[in-house]
Amino acid sequence: MSDSSILVLVGSLRAASTNRQLAEAAAQIAPEGVTLTIHEGLGHIPFYNEDIDVEGSVPEGAAKLRSAIADSDAILVITPEHNGTIPASLKNAIDWASRPFGESTIVGKPLAVIGSAFGQFGGVWAQDETRKAFGITGAKVLDDVKLSIPGSVVRFAETHPKDDAEVVGQLADVVDKLVAATSETVAA
C-alpha cells in the first residue's frame, strides 16, 4: 500500500466531544503508511458568502480548509447530530469546500461519514444529510461505510473511544475501507 493522507473533519467544535475523541482514536490506530490529520478551525470560518469568496481575499480559515482538502487523498467526516441534522459549522465547511463552482478540489475525493450522538440512533440523520450534501459537491461518498454510535455520553463517560475494543475495531474497518477507496480512485 502506498502512503495515504486522510483529512478528518469533526462536526463538533467542543474540545472534549466524543466525536473529537473518535477522530483522535482513528488517527492513533491508522495503519503504517496512512496519516489521519484532524483539521482545526471549522469554527473560525465565516459563514459562506459569495461576496467574500473572491480570489485573493478568501478568508484565511476557508483557504486553509480548501488547501487541506486539496492536499488529502480522502476525507473522513465525524459528526454529531444537532437538532436532527448537520451541525452548522460542518454545513458551512461543506459550502466553502464546494466552491469555486466547477473547480472544487473535493470532486471525486473518497469520503466517509461516521459519528456518535447521545440519542438511540447515534446521529444517523446527521450522517445521512452530510453524505447527501457532500455527494452534491461531487465527493465520492462511500455510502456503504457507516458507523453510528448511540448513547455516546453514557458509553464514553469514563472510557475514551481508543480504549473501547469494539469501537477501535469498527474505526479500523472504516479507515481500511477509505484507504481502499483511495487506492481505487488512484488506479482509475
Rank of each mutant, 00 (worst) to 15 (best):
G115F: 10
A139E: 04
D53L: 13
E166S: 08
R20L: 00
R99W: 09
A16D: 15
D71V: 02
I45C: 09
V175P: 00
V145E: 11
T85I: 07
Q170Y: 02
L76Y: 00
G41A: 05
T79D: 11
T182E: 04
F47W: 08
V175M: 13
L171T: 01
D144K: 14
R20H: 13
A97P: 00
G84Q: 06
P31N: 05
F118K: 13
K64N: 12
D176Y: 02
H39K: 07
W125V: 13
S17Q: 04
T159S: 04
V58Q: 06
G108S: 11
K109V: 14
V10S: 01
S4M: 12
S104M: 02
S5C: 01
E81Q: 07
A181G: 11
D73G: 04
I29C: 04
A26D: 07
R131L: 07
P87W: 09
N19L: 03
S148I: 04
L42F: 11
V34D: 01
G33Q: 02
G11H: 09
P150H: 05
V154C: 00
T185L: 03
G122T: 07
T137M: 03
A139K: 06
I86K: 06
E50T: 14
D143Q: 15
V54I: 15
T159I: 10
E32V: 10
R155N: 12
A16F: 03
T105I: 05
S183F: 02
A88T: 14
V168C: 02
T85R: 12
T182N: 05
G61Y: 09
D143M: 11
M1F: 01
H39D: 13
L171I: 01
G41D: 10
V145R: 00
A139G: 09
V77G: 01
I45F: 08
D3P: 05
A126T: 03
H160M: 13
L9P: 06
V124C: 08
D53T: 08
F156N: 09
L13D: 07
G41M: 10
P59F: 10
V58A: 01
G43F: 05
Q127M: 09
D163E: 11
Q127E: 13
E166F: 05
A181K: 07
L147K: 13
D3N: 14
V168I: 14
Q21K: 09
A165E: 09
A139N: 00
R131P: 03
N92M: 12
D144S: 15
S148T: 05
P100G: 10
I38S: 05
S89H: 04
A93E: 06
H82K: 02
A172R: 12
I6V: 15
V186R: 15
A70C: 11
